[in-house]
């Protein structure tokens, strides 16, 4: 495993551990603020909740994205692809705050509206990657697979998905980074996450909290990107 992709993760963990000790620095930076360090919940708890939101949205996003990608690339399913692209494109065109605002009356405050917005957002890169990668599996390879007597299911599992896996994993990585960044918005609906200090800071006029939440959210997105890059299989020969 290469070491460079792990650097952001190290940076994130370091930031998480050192942040509580930086209260004097924030006090010096923001002298007007009475409480320069966010202490309502520990940053570790916020990080875990944030990660929970990301994972809980990525799993359905991956299933929906890859599933729709497979459906859209079956023979005679061109319309499915158009419809899927339109639907998910629409889901991504609406800002996450708006999705949360619309979802709150339906599902109440908390994690649920944030999850709905995150799934909407994370599905598109996965779907694009899956349908694109599956559509570019060479025709003669598919012809040979059918000609060898593989059933459609065997063609999918033994030939199409293995060949499409690297771009699909890249799409999942994009979706994960997007989800980490977007999950912070969930705080407006009351979801506990690294966005919570940002919202609390905005509401209470405490820019130090905003900086702390934004810093950790950004570092976490870098960390996830680096970790997934390290896990990604080497490019096929």
């Amino acid at each position: 495993m290469r070491l460079a992709p792990l650097l952001p993760a190290v940076l994130f963990v370091t930031g998480l551990l050192l942040l509580p000790a930086t209260a004097p620095a924030f006090a010096a930076l923001f002298p007007d603020v009475s409480d320069p360090l966010y202490r309502r919940e520990s940053f570790a708890t916020l990080t875990l909740n944030h990660a929970g939101l990301v994972i809980a949205s990525l799993v359905p996003a991956a299933l929906i994205g890859i599933g729709l990608g497979i459906a859209a690339t079956r023979p005679g399913a061109r319309e499915v692809r158009v419809v899927a692209d339109t639907l998910v494109g629409f889901a991504q065109a609406v800002p996450p705050v708006a999705v949360i605002a619309i979802a709150v009356p339906a599902v109440g405050f908390g994690a649920a509206p944030a999850l709905i917005a995150l799934v909407c957002y994370a599905t598109l890169p996965v779907l694009r990657a899956a349908s694109g990668a599956l559509a570019t599996v060479p025709r003669d390879v598919l012809d040979a697979a059918r000609g060898a007597g593989m059933t459609p299911r065997q063609v999918l599992w033994q030939v199409e998905l293995p060949l499409a896996a690297p771009p699909i994993l890249a799409g999942l990585r994009v979706a994960a980074v997007l989800a980490v960044a977007t999950a912070a918005v969930g705080a407006v609906a009351g979801a506990s996450c690294l966005g919570t200090p940002i919202i609390a800071g905005l509401v209470n006029g405490n820019p130090a909290w905003v900086v702390q939440g934004a810093l950790l959210t950004g570092l976490m997105a870098f960390a996830v990107d680096g970790l997934l890059a390290a896990l990604a299989p080497a490019a096929p020969r």
Binding site: P138, R139, D140, V141, D143, A144, A145, V159, P162, L163
Partner: peptide
């Protein structure tokens, strides 16, 4: 077939 269609993986 002409394109050979070996499974590249």
């Amino acid at each position: 077939i002409q394109g050979i269609g070996l499974f590249p993986h």
